[in-house]
Nucleic acid binder design. Sequence first.
DNA 1: TCTTTCTGTTCTATATCAGATACAGAAACC
DNA 2: GGTTTCTGTATCTGATATAGAACAGAAAGA
Lengths: 286, 286
Amino acid sequence: MSSVEPLKARRLYLLLRDRIVSGEERPQSRLPSEPTLAEQHGVSRVTVRRALDKLANEGLIERRPGSGTFVNGSKANFPVTADFSNLLSHLVEMGRRTEVKLLSFGYVPPTPVLAEALRLEAGERVQRSVRLRVIDGQPFSYLVTHVPERIGVSYSEADLASKPLLELLERSGLVAERASQTIGATLAGPDIAEALGLEIGAALLALTRVVYAPSGQGIEHLHAFYRPDRYSFQMDLVRTGAGNSRSWTPVERARKGDAKPRNEASARPESNPQMRRGDVPRRTKA
Amino acid sequence: MSSVEPLKARRLYLLLRDRIVSGEERPQSRLPSEPTLAEQHGVSRVTVRRALDKLANEGLIERRPGSGTFVNGSKANFPVTADFSNLLSHLVEMGRRTEVKLLSFGYVPPTPVLAEALRLEAGERVQRSVRLRVIDGQPFSYLVTHVPERIGVSYSEADLASKPLLELLERSGLVAERASQTIGATLAGPDIAEALGLEIGAALLALTRVVYAPSGQGIEHLHAFYRPDRYSFQMDLVRTGAGNSRSWTPVERARKGDAKPRNEASARPESNPQMRRGDVPRRTKA
DNA sequence: TCTTTCTGTTCTATATCAGATACAGAAACC
DNA sequence: GGTTTCTGTATCTGATATAGAACAGAAAGA
């Protein structure tokens, strides 16, 4: 059944983990001995042991009997990263095999929040789909999507399992013009945890996105959860403007392969949406 | 000391929480009764009760004796949001009182990762500071900063507690030209949890940022942790380009107030933040 | 009003976890 | 080789979460 999760052990595990990843405990160095740790933190050695077990499982430490417990050099964990400028598209470019599993599909009445975000008419239902994105055989994101019913019927259930939703929408003649998204964090519940191969209560990167058509009508509402060890958001910024109005502007990230100069943000053909404070083209929502 | 955290109760809590925030259980609707939930999930009613207690603490549900347990319309607390274009600067503009507490300060030898990120010379040390950002009296971010020693000495410890680090750096004649950042998620360890007023093991939004001078030299390495219920990243994107090269471009977000007015009065008299997903049990004795 | 169905509360077994101790094997140092 | 200091392993005891049940009070419907 659900492997039980100790309590003080977890506490100590998190403490040590923080110390290690924050660099307080340096790579190659030896941790205090188990008896020492036990005394330092007022717990028994068994508990210390459980915490160290977890760290060892994740490859953060290495235990050498008779010698001690040693901090591992950063466990070279390069998660897939997403750049904001192109959202998921670069995954395909990178030639990595990503597949999608459709976990759930159906039409439901919208919640108030959904109805408002998508600007639904009264009584209109939404298509709800839950998908799991897998890269190189390993799941990394759990996607809950809501689409207005009249739009959702333009593609089939099978389409959803094979193509990106945005592509399907645009194929249907819809134009995704604007999107608004929020990035946060949350804990993994049982189903998400299982789908992503995580423990219950693991940390998740959460993204909420609403995509709008030029009309201002919402066409997609996405609730995405990412395994932070396999996926993260990454971006480069440059300082622009002068004086008091200096600010940071995102630039397209240099990726491996198609070398883009790291310093010079030259590449950026036409689209330099350098906007100043006031002039945000806010077409929607007066 | 450490208030113990049940296990099955937590599991059920997370399950129900997901259902509620994902909209599977609609606002105003009644949850299955406690005995029913107990049977459905193969746990005792005491356990169900503990899970519901937690949900009730966070304001996600409302319990009416004799009547049932009801899903609360998401009280959608509006977390402070950050736009990428201006990082933290808008907080000040918004006129909200933010203060900084310096938790730790000192000079330490860098870890290999740090040395490489900041392109340090051999033997060069770094200034390490831990700060806590507070808004309206409530902490929302925990910042661990590393700066090369030769740069760090250009400002005082007291400066750090009063001014943004970037401002200090630029005051010293340094130019922050480029930055590279990664956004992920992690769990709260004991010290971060305590500083931010969270439970151990709560979800955190994690940001790693390296700021570079025009020379390519790194001048600041930041490791930031945010309470997801009080702080999140938000951005608007527009679809640019044509044909195959279509992509999303970030635009500066419309500000004023916080999030854009959702229903009505954007004026949210700050008040006590109701919790949202990401759980945030404020330690209040019931 | 009577009945039913809820939540709120208390109680006592039981399963599971944490604390303490003892001992075996492995490595490092003298 | 002997000694010390580690990790690995096992066992016992106390603490606590969970299970199960019983009962009181509140709300809703017949």
